[in-house]
Write a protein that binds this DNA or RNA. Structure first.
Length: 458
DNA sequence: CGTATTTGACCAGCGC
DNA sequence: GCGCTGGTCAAATACG
């Protein structure tokens, strides 16, 4: 009120013809008007600023979504391009192998770049979306690739072993899907590992349904089926190696029809990746080799200096394709064995060792990752082909402490996973409680009653 | 008593 | 056709 009175007096004074006060009253009036407008403008600006902030946040969220989608698409494109390239290379005639070899070094230098880029993209996705989403992406890509590759695999082996060079990304047909379903059911992934490794479990629950003494092996083979899902078709059998009873051979077959627990994903990705490469034809000749070095199963801890090691053996026996992942291999090489389609040569495959590169620090636990190197044909002398793998492995482990450390580190990295730890604990408890049967009595508790699993081939 | 394991029997595929 | 082998079934058994 006092302010109004003062203003009115001032206005009245302004109306007076006083020359002395004229200038002062005008200035005061202008000042009052300006302050009022400033208050209004400030309020409006503040409102607009708030609105701009809100809009900015919305735009940021939208940008993040776009980035996520872009990263996902990039990963898919890279996978598809790589698979497409491999399909073309694997379809090249075998008599071009020498030419392939001559350019080996060049490709050898280029492939790791793709490998690195691919991994970085996946890594970014992992950072943006978290491991769960990244894992889901990887699994989706695996499903897509494996579905395609199974179809192409059927095409290739149905035509007298000749490689179909016309495999394209669009060749996945409904009929092939059915056939791939059958192939998938028959395809197997076998894992050779030390017994301590196997004790870590694989994340799934298994129910034993049979036991059989295999040919020439005093240790019986135990048969398990997945009990996590209703009527899950996945089965596995476990058998101790005849020549080295500290080695367990676990063979997985079939596809889970239920979600896998997180603890089961690393090995699932690895086995899926191995089988994927095998069925995709990437290992069809002695000129295309593949590594699983970044596969979660083989990823080692950051402290590991030398890369983690594994040996993948690819073979087509009479009934089904089989991929054997040898986690006992001490060399820094990944060996691939691919039987020929000839029945005579079926059991005399060639080995193609590969150095395992890649920085273990960059490995993402839940991501499957593949990269391809140029072939190194006939690295092993023919006489070595007949050597017992176990003997070679055992001897190499004994002679090379660094390799032993690398293997130990790789195993330790898995045991550091909380889920894995829980599995170990659960298994040890279950093993105690139920007196878990040991297929070979010389080694305790190979497969506990509820040994967790891991295989999702598709 | 319910659940999981064991184990002998049975079946199918493959090679000779 | 026969035998061998791998794989599965199901009743018996063990365990909590």
């Amino acid at each position: 009120m006092e302010d109004k009175i003062v203003i009115n007096e001032l206005l009245q004074d302004e109306e007076k013809p006083s020359s002395d006060n004229t200038m002062g009253s005008t200035l005061l009036s202008l000042s009052l008007n300006n302050s009022g407008q400033s208050l209004n403008q400030m309020g409006m600006l503040r409102i607009k600023l708030e609105e701009a902030k809100k809009e900015n946040e919305i735009l940021k969220a939208m940008l993040n979504q776009v980035n996520e989608h872009c990263t996902t698409l990039q990963n898919r494109i890279l996978f598809e391009m790589q698979q497409h390239q491999l399909s073309a290379s694997s379809s090249s005639p075998r008599n071009n192998n020498n030419h392939h070899d001559s350019q080996g070094n060049k490709q050898d230098a280029e492939k790791p770049m793709l490998h690195t880029r691919q991994f970085l993209n996946i890594g970014e996705s992992s950072i943006l979306d978290g491991n769960t989403k990244a894992c889901a992406i990887a699994e989706n890509v695996e499903k897509k690739i494996l579905g395609k590759n199974l179809a192409s695999d059927i095409n290739k082996y149905n035509v007298k072993g000749e490689i179909n060079s016309q495999i394209t990304l669009n060749e996945v047909k409904s009929t092939e899907d059915q056939a791939s379903e059958v192939t998938c059911r028959r395809a197997r992934v076998s894992i050779r590992a030390r017994s301590d490794f196997s004790l870590m479990g694989d994340g799934c629950q298994w129910r034993k349904y049979g036991q059989k003494t295999a040919k020439g092996n005093p240790c019986p083979r135990a048969y398990y089926r997945c009990s996590m899902g209703t009527a899950c078709p996945v089965r596995k059998h476990v058998q101790r190696c005849f020549k080295d009873e500290t080695i367990l051979i676990t063979t997985y077959e079939g596809n889970h029809n239920h979600p896998l627990p997180p603890a089961a994903r690393p090995l699932a990705s690895s086995t899926s990746a191995a089988l994927n490469m095998f069925l995709s034809g990437s290992i069809t000749s002695s000129h295309c080799t593949t590594t699983l070095s970044n596969s979660p199963l083989f990823s080692s801890s950051p402290s590991t200096i030398s890369p983690s090691t594994a040996v993948a053996t690819f073979s087509h026996n009479a009934t089904c394709p089989t991929v054997t992942l040898d986690l006992t291999q001490p060399n820094n090489y990944l060996q691939f064995q691919r039987a020929t389609t000839s029945s005579q040569d079926r059991h005399t495959p060639s080995f193609f060792p590969l150095p395992l590169h890649g920085n273990p620090q960059n490995y993402s636990e839940d991501l499957m990752h593949l990269w391809y190197r140029v072939p190194l044909p006939t690295m092993l002398a023919p006489e070595n082909k007949n050597l017992a793998l176990v003997d070679v492995v055992s001897e190499a482990i004994t002679k090379d402490p660094s390799l032993k450390a690398a293997l130990f580190s790789a195993i330790s990295s898995l045991t550091e996973d909380p889920d894995q730890k829980n599995n170990i604990n659960n298994q040890s408890q279950l093993s105690k409680s139920s007196g878990g049967y040991d297929p070979c009595s010389k080694v305790p508790a190979i497969i506990p009653p509820h040994q967790p699993c891991t295989t999702q081939l598709i």
